[in-house]
Design a protein around this nucleic acid. Sequence first.
RNA 1: AGGCGGGUAGCUCAGCGGUAGAGCGCUGGCCUUACAAGCCGGAUGUCGCAGGUUCAAGCCCUGUCCCGCCUACCA
Length: 942
Amino acid sequence: MSDEQSDDKSELSKAYEPMDVEPKWYKFWLEHGVFRANLDPADQREPYAIALPPPNVTGSLHMGHALVVTLEDVLIRHKRMQGRNTLWQPGIDHAGIATQLVVERQLAREGTSRHDLGRAKFVERVWEWKAQSGGRIAEQMKILGASADWDRSLFTMDPPLQRAVREAFVRLYEEGLIYRATRLINWCTDCRTALSDVEVENEESNGELYEFAYRVVDADAADGATELVVATTRPETMLGDTAVAVHPDDPRYTHLHGRKLKHPFLDREIPIITDPILVDMAFGTGAVKVTPGHDFNDFATGKRHQLEEINILNLDGTLNEFCAQFQGLNIKQARSAVKKALAEAGLGRATKAHKLQLPRCTRSNTVVEPMISTQWFVNMKPLAEPALAAVREKRVEIIPAEWEKTYEHFMTNIQDWCISRQLWWGHQIPAFHCADCEYITVTREEQPSACEKCGQNNLTQDPDVLDTWFSSGLWPFSTLGWPDKTPALERFYPTSDMETGYDILFFWVARMMMMGIHFMGAPPFKRVLLHGMIVDETGDKMGKLKGNTLDPVDLVYGADFSAVVQKTMPDAPVAEALAKFKKAYPSSAQMGKGFSASGADALRFTLSSYSPQAKRIALSPARVDGYRKFCNKIYNATRFSLGYLEGESVDVDGRVPAPKLLVNRWILSRLATAVEASTAGIDAYRLDDGSGALYRFFWDEFCAWFVEMAKPVFSHGTSEEKAETRQVLAHTLEAALRALHPYAPFITEDLWQRIPRPASRPVSIALAPYPTAADGRADLGAERDMEALMAAISAARTVRSEHEIKPSAHVQLELRSTDAKLRSLLEEQARFIEFLVRTDGAPAVSAAGERPKGAVLSVAGNIDVLVHLRGLVEPQKEKERIERKLKKIQKDVEVLEKRLKNPSFSRSAPPEVVAEATTLKQTLEREAANLNESLQLVDELH
RNA sequence: AGGCGGGUAGCUCAGCGGUAGAGCGCUGGCCUUACAAGCCGGAUGUCGCAGGUUCAAGCCCUGUCCCGCCUACCA
């Protein structure tokens, strides 16, 4: 088609094509600087800021990102339209381990390694990689319409942020909150680095509980003290055992108190100790081997009993020189070798199946080993207390509020944070070791010239880098220029809302809270808005292996399913991958060969429509398709409107019209309600309510009733009526597009640019004011009258439809009511009834009368609706239908009657509830009477 | 083991004290001059189970069974 080119004045095609408009408008917004925050001191507008959770530099856009972008963009666009000075601060995280692993894999493919390259060259290489592929995710966010202030975008490794990180580290060190210590930490043997507690994930797996015996030194057969059987899930760690513990009150082992055990493989004697904390008499054999070097509980036990801590592992997880013949084996090999050796020595005992939790590295999925190591730590208690108080005192609100408990639990049980990582990619710790006096100089200087203690310049920087989340914790203020007092920091700190997934509540939100309060003296945001995790249609987590990942871009641009699965499971046969995919998304079966190009707006609307209360968001492609249709609806409604507005003189000055026609008064009243609901929904972080209110308003009220009723006005109305209706149409459409803009920015901009709008409006709808109730006109009388009218029309339509009257056939309609006001309403609105019901001339309105033969009677509140159907009805079918309906009504009436007869009901229930029940019962009874009458008449129909 | 959340129409979910809702699917009829990506209709629920509070209970309380997630662990 030639009419859908980019020329604004061109005729509109019949169907909406998002791909033809979306890229164009994004460019337009950038050109007009629509997304920029204003730092001009003269700008008096109230600020509103969100720090976008910086995606990993390694990442490409997934559904989780799409959700973040959508929710935050709705918030930002809404506030921007409300006249706030908005800042949506974007950026990218350097993602220490993740990025290092990616580049290392790349090197491995080239047959080299980071050790071959050396640290400096390797880091250079990572920067190169970042320059090539690090910007991709931002581009994908733009596809979704993200209105972030891209000019301010930052990378956590950028020099200003490096400076902020050094500053934070040095201050915490000077305050004694950062310290170095040797203790048991989580060690990933694959990443070869220490991990923090939150980077370890526990996964249940089936293991075994293995029992073996230690022989007692100087065994004395007389008192039975020959051996002690211990139970363990990790036999190989016996190489590091320095005690065996029993419960002091355990009668089975009293005779062994104070005795020693002989290590079967090592020249070591192991004391038997008593410890009521470690030992549960009922579990296993009641005797626990104690390995302080490789188990957190044993470590604590060792501290209580001054036991030796022996490290039996090399950094790569193989057994070290303390392990005699087992040296060099990896843990798995060592486990079976130790068991075999124990069995051969006659020490093996029972093996029982046992479920256990394996700690795994969140990055590499490798089993994490507790290991004694010297690391840097942050003392968390003093930081956590004020962060906890801020939430308790409601200075920071967490929404949904359930998460406050989780937050509280974490903050009160918080352990010190191990922040050093044995990696090369990241912020290197600003600590310098003196070769002469071993003193550690911690400094803001990039390269200090002398040791603070001895003054010599024999300094080497600590090789470790900081946990990625250390720099992320500073994000809300480091991005604004901290530690300098910049205008941006002055204006936008604290930020307003922090919106993110609940999965990083501990990783990120808690740390920002602590750092923000500590360094800035105020929490970094006023509200924490947490959304759930996106899962597939069956509720499973998305994962490459499961073949159930969805690429947001595929939904926006459209894609064949075969292409989709080839991308997620490149190594699997297409048929197999396709089967997995269809199983994960049953609704895709209805979608033919693939996803349509739904556009960013449809995807955004979909993502806005899920309740943020839900922990899991089961994304349905069919739902996206539904919102694609909604976009088409908006498009066509505008197309219809333009047909009546273009070329006419429509007075659109932004002032609310004061129409006379009922339908016009009504739609303005509904508009007021809808835009208020949208704002209320967004403000309460219930975007599902906000978007839903507009969806229903636009489709069910504006299109289904208002536009339909405008038709007879435009064809047969007086010129005043036409002018009035044009004005209301133009006004409502313009306001509706503005209301919809935060959810669906592209289509609303495109259409808004085409329709008549007040001269005072800015260059983009994104800068236009968000509509309020004042853009409509509340009119309760109009709402009440329209409800009666719509009910009557629907009742008549139902009768028509149930009797299978062709739409082309006109019927005679009679409307009766004992209410004089209703009668005059129906007379006034006769032409609309005629048009919408397709009646043969205007319906007859009367107070009461004989019921003519061959008429079907329906009830709409206080209006009886008679449709003359002589000769058009099949009596038998009609009879069955009526009887079915009667049964239902009678049941409802019974329930109501029972309730009304109960004396306590009328005594205790509020009067309006009683009145409601009474009228309802009357209506139902009237309907039942009518149906009974119809039943009698059916026989006479033919 | 503790904590949190959930079990409502075939599916995915809203509703959280006053006649059970939405989208998709199903179904009858329509190419009615904005939209067939549409229009006008229809059907579908012992609101996990058992007790209790209340005039009134998906909604509040107690117990119970499933399903998720989180935290901490019995070696």
